[in-house]
């Protein structure tokens, strides 16, 4: 089972560029009925990127339209929101619960898509029959969510035409590499993630990677780990 999980995580990692089937490796491992991946909020806009079936897509659509539901709460809190029995969650999301009550949805599990300070969207899993998501499955889904986050951000940056490294000035590449080192040290993450974070931060602020890199090196900008959540200090 551990091997199957590793293989599925690997398969998911290899799927850069192909969004339509992103949920397939996840559903191979996690015993739920369906899954959907959506971007949410101001950063990338609200849009479903991949859904295993029409109901999974519908669940996300309802949450976009009503502006409430587990995916929003998961993204706001930066932690998974697990609702084993959706029918008992009337109080928490009155409008969404009522809208979804016509659909055969027993449980809903929402996992945030986050990279550093960038809040991107959510991975939603649903089950027709009410069920508990075991702690191992929850942990595995978090791993899937973190892989999916990188895909979604890379895709968004590609589509926005964000360049990989700064062309503004002959020394930009070096400065960006040095700043990547700063972020590696600040967050204990891989060089690839650190680079992606600088790129995402530049994109979200409409500035160049070199500008963000200079802010980091001059210590005007710091990424910090606080209680597992990454925060930006300016």
């Amino acid at each position: 089972m551990a091997d199957r999980f590793a293989a599925a995580a690997d398969a998911l990692s290899q799927m850069d560029g192909d969004n339509s089937s992103l949920t397939t490796p996840i559903l191979d491992i996690i015993p739920v009925s369906g899954a959907a991946i959506s971007t949410l909020g101001d950063f990338l806009g609200s849009e479903t990127i991949s859904a295993s079936d029409a109901l999974a897509a519908r669940i996300d659509e309802l949450q976009f339209d009503l502006g409430e539901g587990p995916c929003w709460d998961a993204l706001a809190a930066g932690v998974p929101v697990l609702e084993p029995d959706l029918r008992s969650a009337m109080v928490r999301w009155p409008a969404f619960s009522e809208a979804v009550s016509a659909q055969p949805v027993g449980s809903l599990f929402a996992f945030p898509l986050i990279i550093g300070p960038l809040r991107i969207g959510a991975l939603d899993l649903y089950a027709v029959q009410p069920m508990e998501l075991g702690s191992q499955d929850a942990k595995r889904t978090e791993v899937f969510a973190s892989i999916v986050s990188r895909h979604v951000l890379r895709r968004a940056l590609r589509e926005a035409g964000a360049t990989d490294s700064g062309d503004d000035g002959p020394n930009s590449r070096r400065i960006i590499h040095q700043a990547t080192g700063f972020v590696i040290a600040q967050l204990a993450i891989s060089a690839e993630d650190a680079h992606l974070l600088i790129q995402g931060q530049a994109f979200s602020q409409g500035r160049s990677m070199r500008e963000i890199a200079e802010d980091l090196i001059e210590r005007r900008l710091t990424f910090e780990l606080n209680d597992n959540a990454i925060e930006v200090e300016r």
């Binding site: 590499h177 040095q178 650190a194």
Partner: peptide, 19 residues
């Protein structure tokens, strides 16, 4: 060279020194 620049960044940050 890319890796060396990244490593310089790591040391510059953790030791609080110049590149």
């Amino acid at each position: 060279r890319v890796t060396i620049e990244q490593a310089k960044g790591i040391l510059a940050y953790t030791h609080g020194v110049s590149m």
